[in-house]
Amino acid sequence: MTVIDETPAAAQAVETGKVSSHLHPEPGYDLALHPVPTGREEIWRFTPLKRLQGLLDDQASDAHLSWTTQLPAGVTLTPISGEEARELGEFLPFDRLAALAVAHAGGAMLLDIPAEAELDEPVRIDLEGTGLDQVVWGQVIVRVGRFARATVVIEHRGQARYSHATTVLVGDGAQLDLVTLNDWSDDSVHAGQVGIRVGRDARVRASEFTIGGDLVRTSTNVEYAGPGGDAELLGLYFVDAGQHIEHRLFVDHTAPKTKSNVTYKGALQGEGARAVWIGNVLIRKVAEGIETYEENRNLVLTDGCQADSVPNLEIETGEIEGAGHASAIGRFDDEQLFYLRSRGIEESEARRLVVHGFFNDLIRRVGVPELEERLRAVVEAELERHVLTDGQA
């Protein structure tokens, strides 16, 4: 945990709205703020830059993903210009990947959920890649009106080199469940910045599930537009041999009486499987009376895997209700396995039950029954590849 001294520079950063976190550089559209990284920078030191396959290059592209949508009555999806996106208050890019996505996307797609709407079914957006020939740049804005209640499911699949910047604007008193599924082909590369602005007394639960891709690096950033906002960030990832899966989260408590809770869990199996989780919470001087907790747990199923887990707290005021973090990387719990084996359960079945129990509390909170069943099936399929066959862990 890092406690920041109240220097004039830090105070000025808070007053001007600039992020004073050592883990997050100054955001902005200008590419000069985001030079090509060398890999020695704090925000890039875990990422294998060569495997980004052109996502750091300043090059235009006319390639697009294929969109399939299911929009309940009253919900609209329309293209808007880059200028209109800025007027709506989109999140500024925090790194070069997001800055390039905004610069080359050619505008944004605006998903608009009207004020006071109560949707009986989820909004669904399926984005499918069709090849690796060109980089695909994307920009999406999700706007949820005041006092609306909605579930939005965004699924990425197929084959692509894709980088996007997504902004989620949640109005005062609104409730949003945002579910993102990254189920790419084994040779795909995906980079994404998701910025969530939580309105006064609004509630957001953002669930992210990453189960495919050669390299996936996502950054989820949260800030508050007023007091009383509540953000819950959930994540599940399954990393196979040779995959690099990296999740970066930043919760910026910019208003008093706000809450945040972050829980990410991952499993790794196979030679060269690599998971990176970076969590950071910045509690500003004005954010009195806030509550926050972040947690990351990794289950190593076979030899040859590597997991990095870095939780951080940066605190500028002592007037808070509570703040904490936890991080763990380990193998199967021998006591759990012994307990199950002592009751006549075969070892492979015992391992399966332990892994399903590890993930189940996250999956059951998705709130979309068919997606919950699909995620359980994905976990089962991943276990069949290694854990239930060789028992190396």
Rank of each mutant, 00 (worst) to 15 (best):
A9G: 06
K18N: 07
E26G: 00
G28I: 13
L31N: 03
V36D: 02
E42Y: 02
Q53D: 15
G54H: 09
L56C: 08
A60W: 03
S61T: 15
D62W: 10
E84R: 13
L92T: 00
P93T: 06
D95S: 09
L97P: 11
A99W: 00
A103P: 07
H104Y: 07
G106D: 12
D112P: 00
V123N: 07
R124D: 07
R124E: 15
I125C: 12
D126L: 15
G129M: 04
R146Y: 05
F147V: 07
T151G: 09
V153S: 02
V170Q: 10
V170F: 02
A174V: 08
T180Y: 04
L181K: 03
N182F: 12
W184Y: 13
S185C: 03
S185P: 00
D186P: 06
A191P: 02
R197V: 13
V198I: 08
D201P: 10
S207A: 14
F209A: 08
G212H: 06
T220W: 02
V222T: 03
Y224R: 01
A225T: 03
L236I: 14
G242P: 00
H253C: 09
T254F: 02
T254V: 01
A255I: 11
Y264R: 00
K265T: 10
G272L: 06
I278C: 14
G279P: 06
L282A: 08
R284P: 02
R284Q: 06
V286M: 13
Y293C: 05
E295I: 01
N296H: 14
N298G: 14
L299V: 13
L301H: 02
T302N: 09
S309R: 00
V310A: 08
G322I: 08
R341H: 07
S342Y: 01
S342N: 11
S348N: 08
R352S: 12
V354F: 05
V354D: 01
V355G: 08
F358A: 13
N360L: 14
G367D: 06
E370M: 11
L388W: 03
